[in-house]
Design a protein around this nucleic acid. Structure first.
Length: 670
DNA sequence: CTTACACGCTTTTTT
DNA sequence: AGCGTGTAAG
């Protein structure tokens, strides 16, 4: 008898992979990359190849025949998504660029813009403007100083939405002093919501809320959206909030293929409603989840991890975890005591120059700090010495007053009901304050810009109106429109700002950027969703093509790595922040923040602090961060800065050479 | 009644 | 360095 063997056609055909996944990944990474069906959680300590794993998984899924368009990769920042997709592309091919990716907020906007009537996005400051307006309309200010200010109101609102807790709970837990005003707070928050509805405005939180709402109430949309997501990949899962977890659950409802990657030790966005416990309860939320742990650290030398491990041991929560280095031993991290902030900057500049001379690229060095302003003095010092740098974090170009002024005109054209934009634009005119602006806005009932202007403002109003009418009729491209708006704005800029020259340059940058956008709405929305985050300072003498030194807040440094990392201003009251020390949970978050900073370093890690700080009232002595206090000198080596010619002899450390004038880095133990 | 301006105080991190 | 408040001027 002859037998014919029928191949099973239902089983997935084993593809011929172009990449030999088994040999380029370690077993745990491979397990995650090759994971077949159902939810999976990858718990990945710092430097264990988390990004690499996601990148290879994307490539593998595509090689297995998954349509890239059916893969959704949600990351914390747009920068992270771009980087991953870029890396996947270089690994495999251009198909990876078709993967859908971005932030939760960006993804939600993409969806909502197809399903909601047109709306305008409010960034944090716009939301604050609106809240301020609502607050003053409610006569809140008269209720005495006990009534929360606009930022507190927004914080309450945001916590209410993102944590999905009641306003009463939020106020009693986080702002107990405002408990007597609870009813008034609710009233103001309701009005805030009403205004947003009336004016077709959505704030960041609304993007998440409305998307969840859409998916839960519209079965057709949900079927199409979730049905179109064969694989959902979630990066930085420890920083997702309750709302985002709900969203993720909806998005993967049809295919059930969700992979989350995260590290509870790196949860640093509690202030935005994230809760690292979501990682721990992942299995409850996504039943049957496989947990894969990545433990081998490929990034840092062991002495850096010793400090990182030491920091982690200080946290109240005990999810014990020890990173161990594949790379082995290296230099012991330093705790550098400078006398003043100025000396701290001098030290860093000279170290950077020494490193540069010994062949390290500037782009391999990063200076990290808790607060954006912590780097002000260093920025001056770097500029003086002609060291090129780029700064991430803090105030963004697109959030600065002059850029927002200019964009408000475009926003009016996009959405004539946008009272926040009208208010901003009108307030630029001489003699028009909140009251007059509000009166005008109340008169606007159509997008025909006609109203009865008081004689006092007549000329200015006519100017503004003809600008709007002209742009409305001609609808030039965004860059041409901006050019026209800048003509109008020029005199305002010069009158309003002392440093109008510098701000004018910013506006030129904006103009240049606007060429990339097809519509006003796209330009305005993109700038809110993905603010221009880096402010580059190009200094003459930078070698063409060499990446500059990186200055970054620790928050913005998440997910990145450098050969040498300095952490600035390691002071008690800075990290941990003065305003967190009463709350153990918040102190823990500050600790994790320092942990994140420490684990960015590959070869060398230096914590610096000034012993003397300056405040308005005078100089005062400081204490180094309590987190760095208890380390033995074998783990964290104290460095003393000594002036040249003061009798101390330099140790022969290649990175600490004495040929730079005024070199202070003679090392002293103890 | 509104706006403009000066002064004193200060929570920061991001979508 | 910005924000809210108090004060004086329009």
């Amino acid at each position: 008898m002859k037998r014919f063997v029928l191949k099973s056609e239902s089983a997935e055909r084993r593809p011929d992979y172009r990449i030999d996944y088994g040999s380029v990944l370690n077993p745990a990474q491979y397990k995650a990359v090759a994971h077949g069906g159902g939810p999976a959680l990858v718990v990945a300590g710092a430097g264990t190849g988390k990004t690499r794993t996601l990148v290879y998984r994307v490539a593998r899924l595509i090689e297995s025949g998954v349509d890239p368009d059916q893969i959704v990769l949600l990351t914390f920042t747009r920068r992270a998504a771009d980087e991953m997709i870029e890396r996947a592309s270089s690994l495999l091919d251009g198909r990876c660029r078709l993967v859908r990716g971005g932030t939760f907020h960006g993804f939600c906007h993409g969806l909502l813009s197809q399903h909601l009537p047109p709306y305008t996005l409010l960034d944090a400051e716009d939301a604050a403007d609106l809240m301020h307006h609502v607050r003053s309309q409610a006569g809140a200010a008269r209720n005495g100083s006990l009534f929360p200010n606009r930022n507190t109101l927004l914080a309450i609102q945001s916590a209410h939405v993102n944590r999905q807790e009641s306003v009463a709970d939020i106020v009693s837990a986080r702002h107990p002093s405002h408990l007597p005003a609870l009813d008034a707070i609710r009233e103001v928050l309701n009005r805030y919501a009403d205004h947003k509805l009336d004016q077709h405005l959505l704030d960041f939180d609304d993007l998440l809320v409305r998307t969840l709402d859409l998916l839960r109430t519209d079965a057709v949309v949900k079927g199409r959206v979730s049905g179109g997501i064969r694989h959902l990949l979630l990066d930085e899962f420890q920083d997702t909030n309750a709302l985002q977890v709900d969203l993720a659950a909806e998005l993967c409802a049809v295919h059930g293929q969700v992979m989350a990657v995260g590290d509870d030790a790196q949860s640093i966005y509690g202030f935005r409603g994230s809760d690292h416990r979501h990682i721990l309860s992942f299995g409850d939320r996504f039943p049957g989840a496989v947990v894969i742990t990545l433990e081998e650290n490929y990034r840092s030398v062991q002495p850096i991890l010793n400090v990182a491990n030491g920091l982690l041991e200080l946290t109240k929560q005990v999810y014990p975890k020890r990173l161990s280095a594949v790379r082995g031993m290296g230099e012991v991290p330093a705790l550098v005591k400078a006398r003043t902030v100025v000396e701290q900057s001098r030290f860093i500049c000279q170290m950077v120059l020494n490193l540069r001379e010994s062949g390290m690229e500037l782009g391999q060095i990063a200076i990290l700090f808790r607060n954006s302003r912590d780097s002000f003095d260093l920025e001056t010092a770097l500029t003086q010495r002609g060291i090129p740098f780029v700064k991430y974090g803090g105030l963004r170009l697109s959030e600065s007053a002059h850029v927002k002024d200019v964009l408000s005109i475009l926003r009016i054209l996009v959405n004539p009901a946008d009272g926040v934009a009208w208010n901003r634009a009108l307030s630029l005119l001489d003699g028009i304050g909140p009251k007059t602006a509000a009166d005008f806005i109340a008169q606007i009932r159509s997008d025909a810009y006609d109203w009865t202007a008081g004689v006092r403002y007549k000329d200015q109003i006519t100017d503004l109106l003809s600008l709007l009418t002209e742009l409305k009729a001609a609808r030039p491209k965004p860059d041409a429109a901006l050019r026209r708006i800048l003509e109008w704005y020029g005199p305002v800029l010069r009158k309003k700002f002392e440093d109008h020259v510098k701000r004018g340059q910013d506006l030129e940058v904006l103009l240049e950027m606007s060429e990339r956008y097809g519509t006003y709405a796209e330009l305005v929305t993109k700038l809110s969703l993905e603010p221009i985050e880096a402010t580059a300072v190009d200094v003459a003498g930078a070698e063409a093509g060499e990446k500059p030194l990186v200055l970054s807040t620790i928050h913005s440094a998440k997910g990145l790595e450098w050969k040498v990392v300095f952490v600035l201003q390691c002071l008690d009251g800075v990290i941990p922040s003065l305003y967190s020390i009463d709350n153990p949970d918040q102190v823990d978050e500050e600790l994790r923040l320092l942990y994140v900073a420490a684990t960015r370093a590959q070869d060398m890690l230096l914590f610096t602090y000034p012993a003397l700080a300056r405040s308005g009232s005078g100089d005062y002595f400081t204490k180094p961060s309590r987190f760095l206090d208890g380390f033995p000198e074998t783990d964290l080596e104290p460095w003393l800065l000594v002036e040249e010619g003061s009798g101390f002899k330099a140790l022969d450390d290649p990175t600490v050479t004495a040929d730079v004038p005024q070199d202070p880095e003679n090392r002293e133990d103890g």
